[in-house]
């Protein structure tokens, strides 16, 4: 079933036409070249494709394009222009929390969703916030620590 929709992509009003059941993940990567959105599993198991839809964390592999009419989608490419991103970026670098990096765009957006809802999370809350994002390199400790650092250093931003 084809559809024509209008949605906001990283701040820009965007028209799109195509199959309503197409995965947002595929459209972001293949049609808009937003390849910071990573494809890990295509079934909601890994979180690498996480984006914010109307400010809410979702797996873009499990969102059909027809769902997006009137929505705002933010990918890592849009988020990296924010002050909040700079704080998270620095915190991750300081802890050497990024190894292969494949999970990190999703991790960063999961961190943003967490901190937006809960600006000073506990370690357990951070781990719960990241629980849908798999990382096969780091063992998570450095990532969780970096997010706790960011929550302190970004005082007032969240």
């Amino acid at each position: 079933m084809r559809c024509e929709i209008e949605f906001t992509l990283n701040g820009a009003t965007t028209q799109w036409a195509g199959e309503a059941g197409r995965k947002l993940l595929d459209v972001l990567r293949d049609e808009f070249a937003l390849v910071g959105v990573k494809c890990g599993c295509r079934e909601g198991e890994c979180g690498a494709c996480s984006v914010l839809m109307d400010g809410v964390l979702v797996n873009s592999c499990l969102v059909a394009m027809g769902r997006l009419q009137g929505c705002e989608v933010l990918t890592i490419e849009g988020y990296r222009l924010t002050e909040r991103f700079k704080v998270l970026d620095r915190a991750l670098a300081n802890r050497s929390a990024v190894q292969c990096g494949y999970c990190i765009p999703g991790m960063v957006l999961a961190a943003e969703a967490l901190l937006a809802a809960c600006p000073r999370p506990s370690d357990a809350e951070v781990r719960r916030g990241l629980s849908g994002n798999l990382c096969r390199c780091t063992g998570y400790n450095a990532i969780a620590g970096a997010i706790l650092d960011a929550s302190k250093e970004g005082e007032g931003l969240w």
Partner: peptide, 17 residues
């Protein structure tokens, strides 16, 4: 929510949102 439906790879399905 799409979280079960979208696991299947069939973009031509006639969804009603």
């Amino acid at each position: 929510g799409g979280t079960d439906l979208m696991v299947a790879e069939d973009e031509r399905r006639p969804f009603l949102f």
